[in-house]
Simulated assay, not measured.
Amino acid sequence: MTTEEKQSAENAPHYDIIVIGGGAAGLAGALTLGRARRSVLVVDAGQPRNASAEASHNYLTRDGVPPAELLAAGRAEVAGYGGEFVAGEVVAAESVAGGGFRVVLGSGATARARRLLVTSGLVDELPDVPGLAGRWGRDVLHCPYCHGYEVRDRAIGVLSTGPMGVRQALLWRQWSAEVRLFLHTGPEPTDEQYEQLAARGIAVVDGEVSEVEITGWSGAGDDRISGVKLAGGTVVPCEALVVAPRFDVCGKVIDSLGLEVAGKAAGDGSVLGRHVVAEPGGATRIPGVWVAGNVADPMAKVSGATAMGVHAATEINFDLVEEDTRRAVEVRRRGQEAA
């Protein structure tokens, strides 16, 4: 580190905790820490995973609230307890001599903190099918508990891209009697699976999907999926399409801190994506760094991510209490020796 960089680090604002990510997990953690009378800075890149969804669901007392509205309310609550915010991406973070961390934003600004809570979320890597990505979070879906009720009783297609396809189709059958499994690039179902699908009235469509067909005009707000086009040219009616995205952690801060990343496996052993390895309370193998939300658990819903943020925050505060106590004891002992 150059002399100029050292001076910049020394002059950077200091906080008890810097929260990297302003989604549900980050805001819940910041709120808990603010109420614990800790100084908190939330760095938010402004790219929540559920930004394209019309509403958040299964969040008690807030079911159906648009994601942006939910986050705005959370930010106001955090600010009410003294929490501070800065817009931007943390491009690097490092431990510093004497304890604590220094974070660097894309703008070049820096800040210091005694502890870090990383809630930078994940990226959904979608199947490469024309027309699909633009419908993500609207009528291209992956979680029935988040959006199943909104497409109930419609013609639902399940795009198989891996071993989870059959399981997805059977699950989504709970919300509609008209479910089709498009084999696409997924494996052929076993005889037992074919029997299960037939028993539940789920049709199986062979061949790869070449395109998602859209009707209506986005400017009028009436655009929607109308069908799935197969490579051979056949169009199968469809009003909602279920996919299995690959989940991957995001945020340059993860690499700069050297956090351990591992594959997240489904019940059948297939890898769903990557996540940061952490203890149940969010503690990582890097002392002083906690994680919460989708960066730690790709399957966490909004309510689950919120709970994870609260849990991690309570652990962080207790860790700081222990450090504060050690320092107070050291000061007391030095005073007694001087006397």
Rank of each mutant, 00 (worst) to 15 (best):
E150D: 12
G201P: 06
A266M: 02
G88V: 14
G232W: 05
G227P: 09
V228Q: 06
C143E: 07
D44V: 02
E195L: 04
G233Q: 11
C143F: 10
A79R: 15
G251A: 04
S270K: 04
A36D: 07
G83S: 12
V302S: 02
P130G: 10
A72E: 15
M1E: 05
D44F: 09
A24R: 03
R326H: 14
D139R: 04
G201R: 06
E150K: 09
I254K: 03
V123Q: 15
Q174G: 00
V209T: 05
V42G: 04
F182K: 04
A220F: 12
G221F: 01
A278R: 03
A231S: 13
G207N: 01
K229F: 05
T284V: 05
S39G: 01
P127C: 12
V103T: 15
G251D: 07
Y149T: 03
R326D: 14
G288R: 02
A51G: 00
E4S: 07
A177Y: 00
Y15R: 10
G99T: 09
P48Q: 00
G98I: 08
D153E: 13
R173I: 06
P144V: 09
G82S: 13
V151H: 03
G232S: 13
Y15T: 02
P163Q: 08
E211I: 00
W290S: 06
Y59P: 10
V129I: 15
P163Y: 00
R333C: 13
T110A: 14
A36Q: 12
D255G: 10
D139N: 13
R152I: 09
A109H: 13
D248H: 10
V166L: 01
G26V: 10
V179M: 04
V140C: 08
L116P: 13
V103S: 15
G258K: 10
D16M: 07
A87G: 14
G34S: 14
S56A: 12
T161G: 15
H311S: 13
S256Q: 00
L241N: 07
A133Q: 13
E213R: 09
R152S: 15
L27P: 09
A220R: 11
G269N: 01
T3P: 02
G148F: 11
